[in-house]
Design a protein around this nucleic acid. Structure first.
Lengths: 162, 162
DNA sequence: CAATCTAGTTTAATTATGCAACCATTGGAG
DNA sequence: CTCCAATGGTTGCATAATTAAACTAGATTG
């Protein structure tokens, strides 16, 4: 099988996320949805993708519980696509992607927008990872530990495999 | 051309990031690199991808300044792939992806590892977006503003297009 | 100097993507 | 009530991208 190796059953959570939303269009669809886009035609117009692909992506996102379809809401009886809680949870990922581009892109002048706090119009802070006691952590300050079984006495052996 | 519409010249920073690292393998290669993997064979063994793909990905990542090749370091004269500063900057994206999976995956018991603070072994905090004055911000608390021209008097008109 | 490891390249199959044309439903004009 | 356009898709086909597997070539080991 040449099939696009699915990471659905990989035990690495990064791989799992990528399996769900790790393609260009899904991420951009969620981006638009976070800005209030909910109609098929509007997604299509704003993203400029082919309708068949949009159909497939919307269905996949819906199947995964990232989007849900609501009957209508605005006038005419078509359906609209709304984010679920899981879908809204993608927001930090999009922010991280945005900030990476803002910091490292070699043509930052082509970036036209900045993300600001709606309250006062000021740019948001850079996302940072903190320890429980509030120290900022870089990649080198972290390690992977085998997950301590939540309720069951199920405990894997430690191995830094992902 | 049916070519995978490149977002390289899109003015949305999210699209630009996705264009650079928005495929499964690139992201996973960077994940491994952050854990110290640097040799071709090791990437191949740990990720289980085909060598030709690894070749293409490594070259693309190198061309983009995310990885750099160093002559050897450990004994024999082969080369190794090391992360640049830009490459290490991907870390928050990977953390965001990981945490999304940890929070919303419907089979969290299959996730085998957790990310911990190396100092004390405690789990890291959840990534959160903050305003300049320290309030936590959700997607709804933010807006996009046209970028205020940095040095030049180049100013785009406001439009919430990305 | 033969076997093997590393780091690829080539080949050929499978899949995804994009375009265009087509179908179905809704809403309005005549 | 009928026709026409808009919305929201589905279907078919050509082409580009991914992929696994086989092959290659230089370095290392025995």
């Amino acid at each position: 099988m040449v099939k696009r190796t699915s990471f659905e059953h990989d035990d690495c959570p990064i791989a799992r996320s990528l399996d769900a939303i790790g393609d260009w269009w899904s991420m951009l669809i969620i981006r638009e949805a976070l800005f209030g886009v909910s109609r098929f035609g509007e997604f299509q117009k704003r993203l400029g993708l082919a309708k068949n692909i949009l159909t497939v992506r919307l269905r996949a996102l819906t199947d995964q519980g990232i989007l849900k379809t609501a009957p209508a809401s605005d006038g005419s009886a078509y359906q609209e696509y709304l984010l679920t809680r899981k879908g809204r949870g993608v927001f930090p990922i999009l922010v991280a992607l945005r900030q990476w581009s803002e910091e490292f892109d070699e043509r930052p002048e082509e970036i036209s927008t900045i993300l600001v706090d709606k309250e006062n119009g000021q740019p948001v802070r850079k996302l940072e990872l903190y320890s429980q006691d509030g120290r900022p952590l870089g990649a080198g300050d972290t390690a992977l530990k085998s997950r301590p079984a939540e309720k069951q006495g199920k405990r894997a052996t430690a191995s830094p495999s992902s």
